[in-house]
Each structure stands twice: as C-alpha cells, then as structure tokens.
C-alpha cells in the first residue's frame, strides 16, 4: 500500500507492504478544518481507533503501484478488529506530569486543545487527575520506568519509552512534586484487549480531533519514601496558569499564577483578583473508576506488577524546535 484511508482518515503506509499507522489527530479526508472558523472536527483518527476497539466495521481504501508479488493496485473493503492479525496501540505521549492550566486574557474567544477559552479570563481549563495522576504519585520515577506494566484502556500494556517532551529536570516543590509540566510516558498495548469505554475519539471545536485514553499504573510500595509520595493530595500539586491567547503561542514562558488542584477542582479559582470558573478535559471520575478496576485486578491476581528494566531519564530538559530563518 502506498496510500491508505480507514473510514476516510489517512493512515501512514510507509512502513511495510501491508502495515499501517493511524494517527489519533489525523483529520478525515475533506474535513474543512478551520476554513470556516471555528471548525467542528467531528471525526478523525481518534474516532476510527475507538470504532475499531468497539468492534465496529470500518472501511479500508488503499492504493498501490503494484509489484510482481503484490499485483493489486486498488483495494476497497470492510473489516473489523477481528480481521486483523495485530492491532497495537503505540502512543508516544501520555500521563503528562502536571500539565499547565489555560486561560485567555485577550478580548476574543479562542479555541484550544484545552477547550474553548472565553475572553477576559471567562473560564479556566486543565487536564489532569491531580492526586490520582500516576506520575504525580511517583514524582521522581522510582517505580515507573521503561518496561513497567500499565493498565491501558483495559489491556495490560507497558511503558516502552520515556514519552515525547519528557522533562525531568524541572523545579520541584515539597516531596519532589514538579511545579511545572514534567515527565511523560510512551505507552503501548494490544488494542484487541481494550475496552472502547476507555478509548474515546474527541472533537475540539476550532482546534482538531484527538483521543482520550484511560490509563492506570500500579505503584508497588517498596519503602517508606515511595509510600509517602503516593500520599500526595490535590492541595500539594501546584500547576502553572498560562495565558493561551499570547504567552503560549508566542512562547514567552510567562506564568500568570500558580494554583493547586484542590482549588481547581472546587470549581472556582481566584487569580489576579478575579474569580474564574474552572473545568477539566480529563475525567477524574473515570480515573477513580480505573483505580478501582486496577485494584481489583491486582487483588485477584489478574494483573502482575513488574520491575522496569530501565529508569526514565532523570535529568532531562526540553528544547523547542529551532525557528526558521
């Protein structure tokens, strides 16, 4: 295959003769994107992945130039996940440790991956389970490392690498909780074992499509220090509030304020003398549910913990792509 589309979403075919990568943020062919701003982005790669995992039928359309041993030049067929030999999720960035919080100080509405941000700091959005977020319970990666087993949307997957943008050399507060965006994980798992309720295609108006995943990571309590760090509470986690109208796109690095998760989850945050309503993009109630499922699986012996074979890089900083001339 030289070009291929699944449910009209372009997949990458430059791997091997009949293998494909499908990206979660890939738009559907002919999606008008933001031409009629703000676009709706109703369907894309994330939705295809959700359909696949739910066992729904998908359409494959593929083109090729034809060779002696692969003469077929065009294929249009229907398939489900059961028709595939392998369906593996390979996800290069998950579980962002203390991602920032978004507001908009400009006088016009903006559309971001943290949702629609109303003008003049009319709302504030965040995306983390806070005290239930795996890397905030193991802040310096003592038990979570490369090779660790993870509960990935119902499948037993594992960490295959540090995630993209993994930044461990950051400012840390009490108990080494990062004071800014820090570690990330690259996760993989067998999609045939996943549950569609925890793999959800998402549409962000004016921004694009993506995927929301349920992840649970067990932390073995091997000593007092590990135990202490898992007792982290929302009030101990402070996130940076960033202005997505100017400081984020211009990469000024400016932080408007910091706010802890207890306050964020209360629904109202006061910064710069203003009360601002908050909302989350990730689901705390799903995180709770996953914690319970994983706990039961471990108790029943259905989920075994293992030792990572390599730690995550401990002292790594992040650099931005060089600007063009």
């Amino acid at each position: 295959m030289t070009e291929a589309w699944i449910d009209d979403v372009l997949a990458y075919s430059g791997i091997a003769a009949v293998d494909l990568y499908l990206g979660a943020t890939q738009l559907r062919h002919n999606d008008p994107a933001n031409i009629d701003y703000p676009g709706e982005f109703k369907f894309g790669g994330g939705h295809v992945i959700e359909k696949l995992i739910r066992g729904e039928e998908l359409q494959l359309f593929a083109l090729s130039y034809g060779t002696d041993e692969y003469p077929l030049k065009e294929l249009r067929t229907k398939f489900t996940i059961d028709d595939l030999n392998q369906a593996t999720m390979v996800n290069p960035r998950n579980c962002y440790q203390n991602y920032n919080v978004a507001v908009n100080t400009s006088n016009k509405t903006i559309y971001t991956y943290l949702g629609k941000l109303k003008p003049n700091m009319g709302n504030m959005t965040y995306s983390s389970a806070g005290q239930l977020s795996p890397l905030l319970n193991d802040p310096v990666y003592r038990t979570i490392g490369i090779g660790s087993s993870v509960w990935l949307a119902g499948a037993q997957g594992h960490v295959y690498s540090e995630g993209t943008q993994h930044t461990s050399a950051v400012v840390r507060t009490a108990n080494q909780v990062p004071a800014e965006g820090a570690g990330t994980l690259a996760l993989t798992g067998n999609m045939k074992e996943m549950d569609g309720d925890f793999v959800r295609g998402v549409s962000f108006k004016g921004y694009g499509v993506s995927i929301a995943l349920g992840v649970g990571i067990p932390i073995p309590i091997l000593d007092e220090d590990i135990l202490l760090k898992t007792t982290v509470r929302d009030r101990d986690i402070r996130a940076q509030v960033i202005d997505y109208s100017i400081d984020y796109p211009m990469e000024t690095g400016k932080v408007l304020a910091t706010v802890n998760y207890e306050t964020l989850k209360s629904g109202i945050v006061n910064i710069l003398g203003r009360d601002i309503e908050t909302a989350s993009l990730s689901s705390y109630s799903m995180a709770l549910k996953i914690a319970e499922i994983l706990k039961a699986q471990i108790r029943d012996g259905n989920f075994l913990l293992n030792k990572p074979y390599q730690p995550l890089p401990p002292n790594q900083s992040m650099k931005a792509m060089k600007a063009g001339k």
Binding site: G115, T125, Y284, S285
Partner: peptide, 10 residues
C-alpha cells in the same frame, strides 16, 4: 458522558 466537566463553564 465521561464526566470530564468541560461543558460546565458553558
């Protein structure tokens, strides 16, 4: 609904 809460401020 996943109970993300993004709708709340809208």
């Amino acid at each position: 609904c996943t109970s993300c809460s993004n709708c709340l401020t809208h």
